[in-house]
Structures are given as structure tokens and as C-alpha cells.
Simulated scan of single mutants.
Amino acid sequence: MPSIGAPVPLCAGHVDAVSEWIETETGRTDLLPAPCRVCGSRLGARYPSGWVCAVCEWRVGEVLDGELPPPRIDVVYYIRFDGRIKIGTTANPRQRLQRLWHDDVLAFERGDRLVERRRHEQFAALRQGRSEWFSPAPPLDRHIAGIAAGVDDPWARYTRWVSEALALRG
């Protein structure tokens, strides 16, 4: 019995066969058995031959080249704590933000100390003393919203940057 509304009249058995064939060609998107050892993503594609990370395309189980250091991705981070916003920089945001009290990670922006210094100068009127903490205000809020536009999770953006750096490495 053909499936009603299908673009090609196939019975349920043939639809299943085609679906299985497509999965062998394109993989089936699913959660990886464990976080990717290269980029930390949990999203993968499952093929009959095994798993591949959907972000950096590392084949699960392949030996990592221990001689290569992880890529350095400098970021300017924007975090909120107790009604204040901190603008800082780091090459290791997970480690750095574990040591800082914060309620929310608002955004990541690619950049090093030079970009951080520019942001401190840009929002100097909102700076609290000589610290890296700033009072929320429309100009700063707009800047953070612009950086975060189209990004639901700042960590996903950082993971993509690391993956891109790894891919460029070859």
C-alpha cells in the first residue's frame, strides 16, 4: 500500500529500506556516546562504520596526535554577575570562567588583549573603578546583543572556532 502524500508512491517497507540506505550514505545525527575528545561537542553522525563528530569531523576512536598542542583561540568574554558585566580576555575560557563568579555567560568575541583594551576604552564611562567590571547600560547591552546575535549558546560558538582552527591545521 503506497504512503499517502509521499512524493513517490512507495510502500512502508520500501520507505524503510530507502531510509536505511540514506543513513548509510549521510549518517544519522544523534548524540555521541561521549563528548568529542577534540572539540567537546556532543553532536555526532552515526555511520555503519562508526561515529563522526558533527562539529569537527573527528572519527570517534581515532588516536589524537599528542604532539600537537590545542589551537589557541583568544576570546573577549562578557559575563554577568550580581548586576554587573565583566569584560575580560582569555585563551582558555572554560578554565578561566570556572574561577570567576558569574550568573551568565553573555557572549564571546574573538580577540586578544588589544580588543579587550578597546572595549574597556569604548565603555569607560560605565567602568566601575579601575576594575574590568562595568555597569549595564544601553550602549553596552547593544554591543553584547550584536555580538550574540544569532547565537543561542556562546559555548557553541567557541567550539566552532576551535573546530575551524583544527580543520585549518589539517
Rank of each mutant, 00 (worst) to 15 (best):
16 D>I: 00
12 A>Y: 02
18 V>M: 06
121 E>H: 12
130 R>I: 03
167 A>T: 11
128 Q>N: 12
15 V>G: 00
146 G>N: 14
29 T>H: 06
151 V>A: 08
59 R>M: 09
67 E>F: 12
56 C>H: 11
124 A>S: 13
16 D>R: 13
27 G>V: 00
153 D>G: 07
42 R>V: 13
41 S>D: 10
28 R>F: 05
145 A>M: 03
6 A>K: 01
80 R>L: 14
8 V>E: 00
116 E>T: 05
135 S>I: 01
27 G>E: 04
71 P>E: 05
166 L>I: 13
70 P>K: 12
165 A>Q: 08
126 L>N: 04
92 N>T: 13
153 D>N: 15
75 V>E: 09
146 G>Y: 07
86 K>G: 04
78 Y>L: 12
40 G>R: 02
68 L>R: 15
53 C>N: 10
14 H>Y: 11
170 G>L: 09
11 C>I: 00
2 P>T: 02
77 Y>A: 05
68 L>H: 11
90 T>V: 06
78 Y>R: 00
39 C>F: 05
108 F>C: 06
50 G>Q: 12
111 G>P: 07
27 G>P: 03
138 P>D: 06
32 L>D: 04
78 Y>G: 00
7 P>V: 11
60 V>G: 05
165 A>E: 13
95 Q>M: 10
107 A>H: 10
127 R>V: 02
31 L>P: 09
32 L>F: 07
80 R>C: 09
1 M>Q: 11
100 L>N: 03
102 H>P: 03
15 V>E: 11
123 F>Q: 02
105 V>D: 08
17 A>W: 01
99 R>V: 05
47 Y>C: 04
37 R>L: 12
39 C>P: 04
3 S>E: 14
147 I>M: 10
116 E>C: 06
157 R>Y: 10
34 A>Y: 13
118 R>T: 11
157 R>W: 11
2 P>V: 01
29 T>F: 10
28 R>W: 07
47 Y>D: 08
53 C>W: 08
155 W>C: 11
44 G>Y: 03
142 R>Q: 14
152 D>Y: 00
20 E>G: 06
87 I>H: 02
16 D>H: 09
79 I>Q: 04
82 D>Q: 14
52 V>Q: 10
137 A>M: 07
151 V>I: 15
4 I>T: 12
170 G>E: 12
89 T>R: 14
68 L>D: 13
62 E>F: 09
105 V>E: 04
52 V>M: 09
29 T>M: 08
57 E>K: 07
158 Y>E: 06
29 T>Y: 08
83 G>I: 08
170 G>A: 12
74 D>I: 00
138 P>W: 02
13 G>C: 07
137 A>C: 07
40 G>V: 03
87 I>P: 02
60 V>A: 14
58 W>M: 06
138 P>I: 01
3 S>V: 15
4 I>P: 02
28 R>E: 13
51 W>I: 10
107 A>C: 06
132 E>T: 07
156 A>M: 03
49 S>V: 11
71 P>D: 02
134 F>I: 00
17 A>D: 08
97 L>K: 09
59 R>T: 14
